[in-house]
């Protein structure tokens, strides 16, 4: 596959921005500076970056409880994102949604979601909308291995196939449904196997390899864009941190050695090595990109912390739309 240097560097940037956003967010949660719980995307960056590199602002995505990475990769604004995590009125959702409902409809990001498996039905609605309007927009539905056991996934996959909707189901298989290992929550190894049951292509790729994700996603997204219907793309990936936060709840559900093994295949490190070897991005340049991202994150955190909390009068606003 011929990929321009610009496109490669763009994917690298998206991954670094996600990683930096999440590392700092995790620290803020563990120190108690942001309220509530965060589900961090660290380790899974190649999936969001490799998929989103193919999308336009007019393409939609549905996300999951682990949704920051998707919004960052779709072009989300750090300031509004952090302000939302801090529960401030300047946040994406005016502080009413928080981490698990972060969204940007202008970027086609139809929301992180607190309900596992909630995305697929919404995604087929957006995809239907694209088809109904005769646009060539595509909807990408991110979901996990755990969500692939929810009935909503199966209903949506079937409807997408029978209506030939322009949707790509991207399974981020990180090996765990919360703390339950995949082999204990489903009797198959590849979620992609389920695609054949609905009459759509199913592909498995290494979710730590952004190029593999980029290539497979490109094919599926192009198929959808050209009216060829839905696909299921399974990306085998891994959650470097806990289900919630960095250290999480302290449940002993996996060995540290397992995490270390996966960390050897850190998607950003691997990609930087490759880009450096090919002379497309030097180690020094990469370090500069990390520094810039960190500076942007720090600026966004400062903006968020300086922003006001919502006024109590906002409590009952936004429940309903005033109809003209």
């Amino acid at each position: 596959m011929n990929v321009s240097t610009e496109a490669l560097r763009d994917m690298h940037l998206r991954m670094v921005r996600i990683r930096t956003f999440e590392e700092e967010a995790g620290k803020l949660m563990e120190s108690g500076r942001v309220p509530g719980s965060l589900h961090l995307y660290v380790g899974e960056e190649a999936v969001a970056a490799g998929v989103m590199a193919h999308l336009r602002d007019s393409d939609q995505i549905t996300s999951t409880h682990r949704g920051h990475g998707h919004l960052v990769a779709k072009g989300g604004d750090f300031k509004q994102m952090y302000a939302e995590l801090f529960g401030r009125s300047t946040g994406y959702c005016k502080g009413k949604g928080g981490s698990m409902h972060i969204s940007d409809l202008d970027l086609g990001m139809l929301g992180a979601n607190g309900i596992v498996g909630a995305g697929p039905p919404i995604a087929i609605g957006a995809a239907f909308s694209n088809q109904y309007r005769k646009t060539d927009n595509v909807t990408v539905c991110f979901f996990g291995d755990g969500a692939s056991n929810e009935g909503t996934f199966h209903e949506a996959a079937n409807m997408a196939a029978v209506f030939k909707l322009p949707v790509v189901f991207v399974c981020e298989n990180n090996g765990f449904g919360e703390f339950t290992r995949q082999e204990r929550h489903q009797a198959i190894q590849d979620v992609a196997d389920r695609a054949s049951g609905y009459g759509m292509p199913g592909v498995v790729v290494d979710g730590m390899d952004v190029m593999a994700v980029y290539e497979a996603a490109g094919e599926a997204i192009m198929r959808a864009r050209r009216g060829g219907g839905p696909s299921l793309l399974e990306c085998k990936t891994y959650r470097f941190y806990d289900h919630v936060g960095i250290r999480g709840l302290g449940v002993a559900y996996r060995d540290d050695s397992e995490v270390l093994e996966w960390r050897k295949r850190d998607p950003i490190t691997m990609f930087e090595r490759k880009l450096d070897e090919e002379g497309l991005l030097s180690a020094g340049e990469a370090a500069g990109i990390h520094e810039t991202a960190l500076a942007e994150v720090r600026e966004a955190i400062a903006f968020a912390e300086a922003s006001p909390f919502p006024d109590a009068s906002a409590l009952l606003e936004d429940v309903y739309t005033a109809t003209d």
């Binding site: 939609q60 549905t62 409809l105 139809l110 697929p120 039905p121 919404i122 995604a123 087929i124 609605g125 957006a126 995809a127 239907f128 909308s129 694209n130 109904y132 309007r133 909807t139 009935g151 909503t152 209903e155 949506a156 079937n158 409807m159 029978v162």
Partner: peptide, 19 residues
């Protein structure tokens, strides 16, 4: 199809994107 969750999702996703 007989898929009530899918039906509501179809409506929601379409409504959220302007239909």
């Amino acid at each position: 199809p007989i898929s009530e969750s899918g039906i509501i999702g179809l409506g929601l996703g379409a409504a959220a994107t302007g239909l």
